[in-house]
Computed example of a mutant assay.
Amino acid sequence: MPAGRYVEAVTGATFALAPGEALALVGESGCGKSVLASALLGLLPGNAETAGSARLADGLDLLAADERTLARTVRGRRVALVPQSPAAHLTPVRTIRSQLEETVRELTGTRPPALRAAAEAAAGRAAFPASHLDRHPHELSGGLAQRAATALALVGDAPLLLADEPTTGLDRDLVLRTADELRAHTRADGRALLLITHDLAAAERIADTVAVMYAGRIVETAPAGAFFGSPGPRHPYA
């Protein structure tokens, strides 16, 4: 890109996540939340640049890792993503069963005849009904598409789960149910959860800690109880 035309989408974002902890990164659309998640997984456009570090517990710096390392040892295995608009990220011409079986085979090495049962077990972890496994993504409701994407993300038992706007497009009951399920996965499996959302109800339901992003910067970080209760937010935007 020509000199002078770079835009800093995220600046000075600093946070830490412990095993079993859920952190909600909240802010309006366009503030940089999803850019930050994409940076952690090496999914930014080719002309994007990153600085600083993002270290996993074993010391691996995600921002310094090459594509081979990210593809073979990070994505799905150490960091898993529940994407925004899950239906758009599921392969439209393949059934949910075939996508789960492929993911299980790739991440765990499971082979037939155990593969079918392993895929069904993965679906069950995300409360995806076995009766819908042979359906295609366009045959699913928004809630079921979200559960299918969650099932795929949970296959590799990654210690860090990134959930990027997982409640977008869901009705209020499904928002709360999805929030409860994501929190349950965090507690039961001891994995860290980074929830990216502009839905404060979902954040309150899930988070131990809240980080508020405004114009590409984290302007406030607080325990969820203090943020949503007393003394409440401190920053004017928050």
Rank of each mutant, 00 (worst) to 15 (best):
L161E: 05
T110N: 02
L200T: 11
L154M: 13
Y237G: 03
D199R: 03
A3P: 13
L133H: 04
R111E: 13
T209Y: 02
A153R: 10
E204K: 15
R72A: 12
A65H: 09
S141R: 08
P159V: 14
G32T: 04
P231T: 12
P19W: 03
P236I: 12
D189I: 02
V93K: 06
I218F: 12
G32Q: 04
R111M: 05
T110L: 00
R172T: 08
S85D: 14
R68Q: 14
I206H: 05
L41W: 06
A51Q: 11
V74N: 00
G32R: 02
L44K: 10
L17K: 15
G225T: 03
S29F: 02
A117M: 02
A122C: 10
I96G: 07
L40C: 05
L152W: 06
L44F: 14
P112G: 11
P233Y: 15
A114R: 15
V82G: 04
P19V: 12
A57T: 03
R125I: 01
M213R: 03
G27K: 09
A57P: 03
I206S: 01
A201P: 00
T150P: 00
L63N: 02
F15T: 09
A54H: 01
L174V: 02
A184R: 15
H138K: 07
R116P: 00
G30W: 07
A16I: 06
R72M: 01
P231G: 09
Y237I: 14
G46F: 08
E28N: 04
L44Y: 08
R234P: 05
A158H: 09
R72Y: 01
A65S: 14
A238P: 09
A87I: 09
L62E: 04
N47S: 15
A114Y: 13
L62C: 06
R68P: 00
S98K: 14
A88V: 04
L140S: 10
L81Q: 09
G12K: 12
V82T: 07
L62M: 01
E120Q: 13
L160Q: 06
M213D: 03
E165Y: 05
M1V: 05
R5F: 15
G20R: 13
L107E: 00
H136K: 10
T14Y: 12
A158N: 11
P231W: 12
P45I: 14
A57H: 04
D66L: 07
E120C: 14
G46P: 03
F227I: 03
A71V: 07
I96V: 15
A215F: 06
N47C: 11
A151R: 13
G76F: 03
R187S: 01
V93Y: 13
L174H: 06
A54N: 05
L40V: 02
N47Q: 15
L160S: 06
L176M: 14
L40M: 07
A184K: 09
L193Y: 09
S53H: 15
G76R: 03
V82I: 11
H136M: 09
P129N: 06
P19Y: 10
G190A: 05
R75L: 01
L17C: 13
E49L: 13
A54G: 00
R234I: 02
V26H: 12
R68H: 12
A54D: 01
T110E: 10
A224H: 11
E28G: 08
